[in-house]
Amino acid sequence: MIDWNEVIALAMESFPKMFMAGITATIPLALVSFVLAMIIAVACAMVQYARIPVIRRIVQFYIWVFRGTPMLVQLFIMYFGMQSIGIRISAVTAAIIVFSLNTGAYCAETVRGSIEGVSKGQFEAGYCSGMNYMQIMFHVVLPQAFRTAFPSLFNNLISLVKDTSLAANITVVEMFMTTERIAGRTYRFMQLYLEVALVYLIFCTILTWVQSWGEKKLSYYDVKKV
């Protein structure tokens, strides 16, 4: 029979630990990686869009590799693989590198598609206003592309928050690793895994709210004035 007192006692002990790990490890890991992923994505998208020779091929190769291999394998290569050939990268650094490169590869395609969706007339108007390519890109085209890409980019962020749990496999002490440690000590696997699933669910639900709020904010330029 289930001893509810024990269940509650464990929950009281484990939930705060999970939340702490979530707020101090999972979320920062996801956010830092995502910011880097965005920089990578925009840079790659611009290279692709402008059809810069050679670099464009390198970008295509990078996207092909990172979208075509499992993230878990990428993590193992970056941490254990590197270690085995004498290159020591801390587990957290390895995780951030892999998460940002992996997410960057996915987001690059999204951003490129959104840039291509911006009307050519915006470029022409910019040129005729005396602006150069980069000025038009940063003041006119990218802001418009970002709005188109936002929902899809945000979905990638939500995926990334969950995928950070993979970092537990390369010894990063994030939320899932914290859970594993409590489970290893108490053997209450079902309860603890359900609990951690619930915490991820809460985090992702909050992010979904942030997403709808952001979408509203970003549509500022097509709201009718009353």
């Binding site: 007339g121 915006q122 022409e124 108007a125 005396g130 003041h139 418009q144 330029y221 097509d222």
Partner: peptide
């Protein structure tokens, strides 16, 4: 182009 202005058929205002 520094000395010219251009007005387009479909305006092409920066929508953002």
């Amino acid at each position: 182009r520094r000395h010219t202005g251009f007005v387009f058929q479909n305006y092409n205002l920066f929508i953002n």
